[in-house]
Design a protein around this nucleic acid. Structure first.
Lengths: 152, 152
DNA sequence: TCCTAGTATGTTATTACATAACACCCTATA
DNA sequence: TATAGGGTGTTATGTAATAACATACTAGGA
């Protein structure tokens, strides 16, 4: 059986290859490995879980290798870092350049991604009203997802 | 000369005392000390800078002491944690319970606080549209503040 | 008065998160 | 064929946060 997770992963990998080729960067083994692990995970992962997972299949994998891959993937928008708890999650809408909000369920820990054009405009205006020129925005939430609400 | 920073600090301390009394909690020495240091700082501070600063006036101050004080002050809304870079800043509008966005200048590192009722409603709706019940929200930005824009 | 529950701090040790610095390897191109 | 740029491997270290346990103060009940 081919799960939807697996399909999503194939998509992400292809997206990544395409993005790299377009921008002249290499989609190397460690970058692929990190993206695969994240894409296969149900929930956002901590860096050190990623590191040990990446090291399972033979060769040892050390922190800098994984952090470098994460930086790279974040810049491409294929992975998001959740600042609240220093975790990393593969992006659902791979390749979007737009900002997204990430809502993490307190029960199952899964992340829900939501685009927020409208919100960013408002915040830009609010910032501008105080003379602040907004360049980067982080929007994150915690709460309860639909599945967990049903289950409760 | 009495600076506005000092006035702000006096205000904050009084707010803190009042809040604690109302809720039956103690505004103890380490809590006061941490709040004073943060209120006196121009910019958000890292926890370990706080720790060494707190330890300057005689007695050694260890991480748990400061982290406990920070947790306490954050819960009261007197201090905010900036998730992006793990720093802490005294709250401008002491005692507000409402959510605020924190915009940090990339040049001078000062934080600007902005209330955002409107935004939180929108995000709650956006979350609700995906069945997500939003309980806590983090909104943070980076960019350039007014002063630094003028100077450039 | 003495006990005990609740709140808070002090201290040691450890766990978790992240990066600096340097050696080495590819590969495109001048 | 030299060399510059991009990338990885490795060691070591820096930085952020908490677990676990001992101790102290205070308020209220027996």
């Amino acid at each position: 059986m081919v799960t939807s997770k697996e399909v999503q992963m194939q998509d992400l990998i292809r997206q990544a290859e395409a993005l790299c080729q377009r921008s002249g960067m290499a989609f190397t083994a460690p970058r692929r490995r990190v993206l695969e692990i994240l894409a296969a995970s149900e929930t956002p992962m901590k860096a050190y879980d990623l590191i040990s997972k990446a090291g399972e299949g033979g060769q040892a994998t050390k922190p800098p290798t994984v952090y470098r891959a994460l930086d790279f993937l974040c810049q491409l928008g294929l992975v998001h870092r959740i600042e609240q708890d220093a975790t990393f999650v593969a992006c659902n809408h791979a390749g979007h350049a737009q900002p997204v909000a990430l809502f993490v369920c307190n029960s199952c820990l899964k992340a829900t991604e939501v685009a927020y054009d409208e919100v960013s405009h408002i915040l830009e205006k609010a910032a501008a009203a105080k003379g602040f020129n907004l360049q980067r925005l982080v929007v994150e939430g915690r709460g309860q997802c639909q599945e967990c609400a049903m289950a409760a």
